[in-house]
Design a protein around this nucleic acid. Structure first.
Length: 562
RNA sequence: GCCCGCGUAGCUCAACGGAUAGAGCGUUUGUCUUCGGAACAAAAGGUUGGGGGUUCGAGCCCCUCCGCGGGCGCCA
């Protein structure tokens, strides 16, 4: 990556200046490179001279001048200059830039990959919505962030496993089973009361109907608790199928669907309790089992297993935290992931310290646990706040949103702002706004290139024997620079786990192509120079590849026609 | 009350502690007898919520107010 090359060259320059006595001897800190605000300031810049002024005991500008003086010659660099108050600006060489078109085309779909992760094994767990109803739009941001992150980390040389944590233990899924039972009975004409905590959505009726159709009255003839247990299992698996289908529409496929219940069935839950107890980090109080989180610096202790007085069902006594602890152990020890990444909404931020403390209590390095908190999307419809309650049956499904707005627009929109930003999302506006979503601009540029390539083929223009050195127009060089930036964006986004940089980059790249397209005719009859046609076709092919990659990383399609 | 996040152009949002704070949409104007006009070029639009502080340099870091969202239970 050119950026890293420049860092090394700057380091060499500093070191050479020290050897020559132009600068005093001091330890050279990590070199940070930025992009200057204006094009006439070059392509890259560094403020290292400003930062070194103290340690080097020289005026910033003087340090910058020394760096320029000792900067090694390099084919990629056309100009190095110092500028007040102490910046060093670097300009890339046109000949080198033009050559990069061949490099990009040689790399093809691999272009943009960076070695960052060194093959480390990372798990990303996301969505993990309760399997008690269809996916709602409330899960959309979680899904978009998690899946884009997975794609990004793969591009950054991590081994990535994606996982959906299925909350199939506890009272919520029991309520689902009870709701299905009630609907089955009602559909058979029985006067069965609907449970207070039941799920009132119409989809429960659909499930009941399907079950009656398939299995007849089997479950209605069973003892109630056994029937609920059976219907719960069937309901969960049917909901998961529905959720899986919705996710597939959105371009999201999970490597693993991990059952919460399995943590209890396997005995791992008890093992973890024993481990904590052995360290003296649990105690009993009022019939409940507590985790002594205060011993790890937290404000208060947390309940792991509720008392019989509070929760009658023994299976439902463990809290969320109780399963989070064996789960993190399972991730980091049983399965040996180097890092476990969680994507949680801001409504779970309070659980973060407890899980990290729990990991630490179990002797795991908390740095291997990364919990990304995203701010909740504020859903409105025509300015009115939308309430989301699966239990009351009031919610907007993700399927409906995809029907109305389209997968590409939804994903692009949701990933454009950083996880820390509370987004406003108006379901009514989203439909109208779909045509002005920037995603279409980027896709259009891709389709446009595809159209040009089709035209070229029709005109019998074959690729090959192109001399990319003919590419010297500012719009051509700028487009190449933007394409090269993909590597930096992937490295940045993967390092900081911030997928929102991708859509902004895609727009920037689209603009660069559009400007090139407007200023530089490619095909006859507009372009009469056959050699230039071939060179520009190479550039167009490269641009198409990079645009497609940028879109794919966000999970957006790159259409050949629109 | 305490904890976390956020307050940037009319709207939705960007901006490794760096240079004159940028995009999209919207508004206004222009370009082109369209290699795909879902385009390009330009303009208007800002005291980065207020006030202090640190720094050569602050939208970004610290303090403090105000506002918004979320969390603070043997709920899940």
């Amino acid at each position: 990556m050119i950026r890293h090359t420049l860092e090394e060259l700057l380091r060499d320059a500093l070191s050479a200046a020290q050897t020559a006595g132009d600068l005093p001897t001091f330890e050279i800190p990590p070199i940070e490179i930025a992009r200057p605000p204006k094009p006439n300031m070059g392509d890259y810049s560094t403020s290292l001279a400003l930062k070194l002024a103290g340690t080097a005991k020289r005026a910033p500008l003087q340090i910058a001048q020394s760096v320029v003086k000792h900067f090694p010659a390099h084919a990629a660099i056309a100009q190095v200059e110092s500028v007040a108050p102490g910046f060093v600006n670097l300009t890339l060489a046109p000949a080198w830039l033009a050559q990069q078109v061949n490099e990009i085309n040689a790399a093809g779909a691999q272009f943009g990959n960076v070695p960052l992760g060194n093959g480390a094994h990372v798990q990303i767990e996301f969505v993990s919505a309760n399997p008690t109803g269809p996916m709602t739009v409330a899960s959309a941001r979680n899904m978009a962030i998690g899946d884009t992150l997975a794609r990004l980390l793969r591009a950054a040389n991590y081994r990535v496993a994606t996982e959906y944590y299925v909350n199939d233990a506890g009272s919520q899924v029991r309520h689902l089973g009870e709701s299905i039972y009630a609907r089955c009975a009602q559909q058979r004409g029985r006067d069965e009361p609907f449970p207070d905590d039941g799920y009132k959505g119409e989809y429960v009726n659909d499930i009941a109907r399907a079950i009656l159709e398939r299995d007849g009255d089997t479950y209605l003839q069973m003892e109630y608790p056994a029937a609920v247990r059976a219907l719960k299992k069937i309901g969960v698996s049917m909901m998961l199928e529905k959720i899986r289908a919705t996710l597939a529409r959105a371009g999201v496929v999970f490597d693993e669907w991990f059952s919460e219940q399995s943590l209890y069935d396997s005995g791992l839950f008890n093992t973890i309790l024993d481990k904590l107890a052995a360290k003296g980090l649990t105690y009993e109080k009022d019939g409940a089992v507590w985790f002594q989180a205060t011993a790890l610096g937290l404000d208060k202790d947390a309940v792991l297993v509720r008392s019989a007085q509070v929760v009658s069902e023994p299976d439902e006594r463990p809290t969320y935290l109780a399963s989070d602890l064996p789960y993190v152990w399972n991730k980091l020890v049983t399965r040996g992931f180097d890092r476990a990444i969680y994507i949680w909404g801001a409504d779970h931020q309070g659980d973060v310290p407890r899980v990290l403390a729990g990991a630490q209590a179990l002797g795991l390095d908390p740095k291997r646990v990364v919990i990304i908190i995203y701010q909740l999307v504020r859903l409105t419809r025509g300015g009115e706040k939308v309430r989301m309650s699966k239990r009351a049956g009031e919610f907007d499904t993700l399927d409906d949103l995809i029907d109305d707005v389209g997968v590409d627009a939804v994903r692009f929109l949701l990933i454009t702002s950083s996880a820390d930003t509370s987004m406003d999302f108006d379901l009514q506006l989203a439909v109208q706004r779909s045509n002005e979503n920037p995603v279409y601009y980027v896709q259009y540029m891709h389709a446009r290139i595809a159209g040009i390539l089709r035209n070229a083929a029709e005109q019998g223009i074959a690729r090959g024997q192109a001399d990319v050195n003919l590419l010297r127009h500012p719009a051509e060089l700028n487009l190449i620079k933007q394409m090269l930036k993909l590597e930096e964006i992937i490295e940045l986004a993967a390092t900081k786990l911030e997928p929102h940089h991708l859509p902004h980059y895609a727009m920037e790249l689209g603009r660069a192509f559009s400007a090139f397209y407007d200023h530089c005719p490619i095909l006859p009859p507009k372009q009469t120079d056959a050699a230039l046609t071939r060179a520009r076709l190479e550039l167009a092919v490269a641009a198409k590849t990079v645009l497609a990659r940028a879109l794919d990383l966000v999970g957006v399609t790159a259409p050949e026609t629109m």
